[in-house]
Each structure stands twice: as structure tokens, then as C-alpha cells.
């Protein structure tokens, strides 16, 4: 049994102008102790699909799935109390914006200890000791003093370390990191990423790493999921994906990598942006930006290919018979 099992996850938002489907038909299973990366451009529904797993979407969101299970527990029918017992304890998440993700009114110590006391039933003293330990583990100097600091006294990198300490406080079996380095300085990005991978190895937890940087994927993940406009367009292990991308979108993402870019071509090799609520194309969602699209792509919605072709949602997967 997989740690996390997702089949046909769909998320719709009730908006002023009707329903907007932000995530459609996502399948994913995550095994204990592995690192899975979810990549895709801004607006492709990476955050929304993982927030759905965590149960953190606003009330305007409607989540449906054939299967949505964590460790065999059905997350769709679970009671709110059981759900709360899981969140923050067995599955945890860190977010894109560390600076705004910490509550400005409370000390770092208070915010870390809170989860420890709730889930592990530690008393004030034990929670404090454990918090010091956690801050040490995430590489924060003079941790005992840091506990009484307020978030505005921390830099972005420090805030993200605190967020990580908070997320791993109760030894989760699954950690979802939503673009944990996007808001940080380039020099800090690598440090935070190393920290995450290091913690993941030492604790044997599963890590879902959301990112739009292919370079990060290559360095960390074992398996990769590519999302585009709410669709999961390709799924492969990391070597297969880099050597033989099957979806044209994946191929385009790879050519956008600096070390692969041919001299003289533009860095972003795919013009255009991810369609949103008001400009969803017919047929294949990617056809307006796809160099290989033809009439069939405009009219007919593609279905996933077989596993040997990375389940690419494309009429003409790369490496397949044309």
C-alpha cells in the first residue's frame, strides 16, 4: 500500500463567473521515503492539488476524487477531528512565502511548541527542549535565543528554516514542500534544498517537492510529475524524464534549462502562458503553444498514453509511433 494514493483528483472553484476547474484528473501515488517532484509553470495547479490533499483549500473549493487516501485512510470521508489529528502530525506542508506564513503576533517558540503540545501532548518544558532541538536540526544558530524572536526579526531564509522546523516537529511521514525556495535569495535556495533532502534521508519521510525549476528536480527527485493547466501531462522517473521526455511540454521545459539552451535561442523556449479560467482552449490544453499541434489537437481531447510513454496526455507523444 502506498503512503499517499491519489486517483482522478479534481478541484473546482466556485467563482463569480461560474465554476473554474483548477485541477483535473490528477493521479499520483507516493511510497514511503521517496522524493517526488511536481513541476509546471505558474498556474498549473500544483499548489491547489496538494492543498486539496492537506485539506487546506478555502470553502469555495470543491474536491472530488476516485481515491484520496493517506496510509489507507480515506481523506474524503474522514471526520474533521481525525483529519486534524493527521495534519501537522503525519502529513505536513511548508509554503511558498515563508515571510507571510509565520504569524507576526507570536514568537517563533510559541508557533513551534504549539504543534508539539497539541499532537505529542508534551508539556511546556518538554516542548521548549524539543523546539531547541528542532531549530538546531534546521541549522539555526543560537536556537534557544531564537525561540523568543518574532517573525519580523528573521530573514526570509531563517523564516523558511523555522517553517521547516515546524513542519517536521511531529515527525511526519509525508512532507509537502510547495516551492520552498522560490521566494528566497539564490544563495539561500541551495542551502534550504540541501536541508530538506538531508532531513528526508535521515528521517525516511516521503517528500513531495513542488517546483517550477527543472534543475532542482534533477538534483533531488526520484520521480517526476509534470502538470499543465490542471492536467497531469506526464509522469516518469527522473532519468527517463530527462533523457526521453514524451510530452512536448516536458520537452519544452527541458530546453528552457540554461545548460541545455542552444547558443542564441531564447531561454524560455515556449511562448505564451498557462491558460486560466477565461481562456481554456478546446481539445488539448497545450495546443496553442505546442509546435507539433494539428487539427486533431484543436478538436479532440487527448487521453493518457501507456506507462512506457510516461502516461503522456498527448495525441503524438515524443518517442511514440506517429
Amino acid at each position: 500500500m502506498s503512503l499517499l494514493e491519489i486517483r482522478n483528483l479534481t478541484v473546482r472553484f466556485a467563482t463569480a463567473s461560474g465554476w473554474f476547474t483548477a485541477v483535473e484528473g490528477v493521479d499520483l501515488s507516493v511510497e514511503k521515503g521517496e522524493i517526488v517532484a511536481i513541476v509546471g509553470e505558474s498556474g498549473s495547479g500544483k499548489s491547489v492539488s496538494m492543498l486539496a490533499v492537506m485539506g487546506l483549500l478555502p470553502p469555495t473549493a470543491q474536491v472530488t476524487a476516485d481515491v484520496l487516501a493517506f496510509d489507507g485512510k480515506d481523506l474524503l470521508t474522514i471526520s474533521p477531528a481525525e483529519r486534524r489529528a493527521l495534519t501537522g502530525a503525519d502529513m505536513a506542508m511548508i509554503f511558498q512565502e515563508p515571510m507571510s506564513s509565520l504569524n507576526p503576533c507570536f514568537t517563533v517558540g510559541f508557533q513551534i511548541e504549539e504543534a508539539l503540545r497539541l499532537h505529542l501532548g508534551l508539556n511546556k518544558r518538554q516542548a521548549r527542549d524539543r523546539a531547541v532541538e528542532l531549530l538546531t536540526q534546521v541549522g539555526i544558530p543560537s536556537p534557544a535565543q531564537r525561540l523568543s524572536a518574532y517573525p519580523h526579526q528573521l530573514s526570509g531564509g531563517m523564516s523558511q528554516r523555522v517553517m521547516i522546523a515546524m513542519a517536521i516537529a511531529c515527525d511526519p511521514r509525508l512532507l509537502i514542500a510547495d516551492e520552498p525556495t522560490t521566494a528566497l535569495d539564490v544563495t539561500i535556495q541551495a542551502q534550504i534544498l540541501d536541508l530538506l533532502v538531508d532531513l528526508q534521508e535521515r528521517r525516511g519521510m516521503a517528500l513531495i517537492l513542488i517546483t517550477h525549476a527543472m534543475g532542482v528536480v534533477a538534483e533531488t527527485a526520484q520521480r517526476v510529475v509534470v502538470q499543465y493547466a490542471g492536467w497531469q501531462v506526464e509522469k516518469q522517473d527522473v532519468y527517463g524524464l530527462f533523457d526521453h521526455p514524451h510530452h512536448p511540454y516536458t520537452a519544452a521545459l527541458l530546453t528552457a534549462l540554461p545548460e541545455r539552451a542552444v547558443e542564441g535561442t531564447r531561454l524560455a523556449s515556449i511562448p505564451g502562458v498557462v491558460p486560466g479560467q477565461f481562456d481554456k482552449p478546446s481539445g488539448c490544453l497545450f495546443h496553442p503553444r505546442c509546435p507539433r499541434a494539428d487539427q486533431r489537437c484543436v478538436e479532440v481531447r487527448p487521453v493518457p498514453a501507456g506507462p512506457e510513454l510516461g502516461e503522456a496526455v498527448c495525441h503524438y507523444p515524443l518517442g511514440g509511433a506517429r
Binding site: G88, C105, M166
Partner: peptide
């Protein structure tokens, strides 16, 4: 209530009472 830190509080598995009455209310 739509701030990121309120989502963080919910991500810790805190009861709604505490998320709304402490984390959000204080701000």
C-alpha cells in the same frame, strides 16, 4: 482569515476555535 499564516495554523492541525480565536483574532 485569508492570510498565509492562518493557513499555516490550519496546517498544524489546530482546532478551528484556536485558528480563528487566537491566530486570526490576534491579528
Amino acid at each position: 482569515l485569508s492570510e498565509d499564516y492562518v493557513r499555516t495554523a490550519r496546517a498544524k492541525g489546530l482546532p478551528t476555535r484556536r485558528v480563528v480565536g487566537l491566530h486570526a483574532f490576534r491579528n
